[in-house]
Structures are given as structure tokens and as C-alpha cells.
Simulated assay, not measured.
Amino acid sequence: MAIRTLVWGENVHEHLNKVVHDTYPEGMHTQIAKLLSSDANISASTATLQEPEHGLTEAILAETDVLLWWGHRAHGDVADEVVERVAKRVWEGMGLIVLHSGHFSKIFKRLMGSPCALSWREAGERERLWVVNPGHPIAKGLPAHFELENEEMYGEPFSVPEPLETVFVSWFQGGEIFRSGLTYRRGAGNVFYFRPGHETYPTYHDDTVGKVLRNAVNWAYNPNNYPDITEAPNVPVDKALEPIVARGQGLHSAGEEGFK
């Protein structure tokens, strides 16, 4: 079965900025899905902020193996209940790939537990991405480095937790560097942050970027979900693996749910 992949796009700049619209006339989310669809192992669909429940209903997320997230202008418009719903699916095993300005999204901050802040400059400068972990599956088939002629600069420090792995490091014409490809695991879910993707530049028309995203989807996919990861069952005394007798006073009655 193909990896069921959902590309979530804010879909705001495309309607407000002519440059963005001309670069992505069908929406950034649609172009990203096209990049993914060249891999026969990936079945890509899209959802946007404007749909009911932002296109991220419980039913849709239950049928999603990997979610890609691009947002920028409207981070605050994403409903908190939807953020919690997505976080739960990641904990259960859904993969999550956060793109570019998604570093400030509610879901990335929720899962990182940190400010996720950085420095930036919008000057269309060249970005050179170095593959610093060539043996990683996300780097499969990539050259030692690749370049994007026009990109927004992101600079360190990047206030995120120490990653499991660093796959890419970027250099910009202005001299800054940035950790541009970071992996994490949250619960049973694999998480990848990939830096490039400013909306006024044709980053998601780049073949190498497409290869990175396809590799990332295949890496993030976890066929072994853990649907009970958020449960905290009260194990009865008579169900203990070894015979025991309850002693002293407890706060809860037998079988009573605990506080969360």
C-alpha cells in the first residue's frame, strides 16, 4: 500500500501576493503534492486552512501516514483543538514534516516545547545546503551539496531541542549558517524539519528539493502505530503480574480513572 501522505497548506499568500500566485498558481500545497506524486510509493493529497476543521478532521488524520505542514501568515488562525488532534496522531505514529516558516507553527512549537525562534533576512540570496549526514535515508541519492539561487535566509541560533540527527546545514551569501534538516521522534512519530521553501521563490519547483521531500516521506512513515500511547490505565490489584495485596489508603477506587 502506498504511503498515505497529506500536504497541509495555509493557502493565504497565494491569494494576497501576485508573486506567490504567479509562482504557485494552484497553491504551494498542490505543487508540493506534485513533487511527492512522482514516487509510486506515495499517495499525496492536500488540505488547507480554509476547509472545515482545516481539512484535518479525526477521520482524515486516521487515514494519514505522513503529514507535511507549510504555514506562515496565519499560524494563529489554526484552532488549538486541531493542533492537539495532530499532536496526538504524531504521538501515535503519524509522521510529520514541517517546512520552512512552519517552524513557528503551533504544531511544531507544541511538539518541540521550545520557542523555535531564529534570525532571518528576505534578500533572495543563494543558499548552499550541505549534506552532513550522507548515510541518512533522507539524503539518499543526493550530491554532497546543492544550491538554491534565491531563498530567504534563516540564521542561528535556532531555539529548538537538540535533534536526533542533523541531515543538512545551510550557508547563505550573507555569511550565516543554519541547521536546515533536523529529525526528531515524538512518541511513535518521526518528525523532520526542512528549512527551504519561502513563498516568493520557486523552491518547490526544484528537482532536488522534491527528492528530499520524497525521501523524507519514506523515512517518516511508521507502519507500527501506537493508538493507546495517550492512555494511562489504572491496573487493578488482581491483574498484577505477580500476586500482591493492596496496603494503605489509595486516592482512587479500583478501576477509577486517574487525573490528567
Rank of each mutant, 00 (worst) to 15 (best):
I3N: 08
V7D: 00
V12A: 04
V12G: 03
V12N: 10
V12E: 13
H15S: 13
V19R: 11
V19M: 10
V20H: 03
D22M: 11
P25R: 05
E26H: 10
T30V: 14
K34L: 02
L35Y: 04
S37V: 02
S38F: 08
D39P: 11
S43N: 09
S45V: 07
A47L: 08
T48D: 12
L49W: 14
E51H: 06
D65P: 01
V66Y: 07
V78W: 12
A79P: 14
E84R: 05
E92T: 06
G102M: 13
H103A: 13
F108Y: 12
R110G: 03
L111W: 02
A117H: 15
W120F: 15
R126C: 02
L129P: 03
L129Q: 12
V132L: 02
N133M: 01
A139W: 05
L142D: 09
L148H: 12
N150K: 15
Y154L: 14
Y154F: 15
E156W: 05
V160L: 03
V169T: 13
V169I: 13
F172S: 04
Q173W: 07
R179D: 10
R185W: 00
F194W: 04
E199N: 11
T200E: 07
T200V: 15
Y204H: 15
T208V: 14
K211D: 12
K211G: 09
R214K: 07
P227S: 06
I244M: 14
I244F: 11
I244R: 10
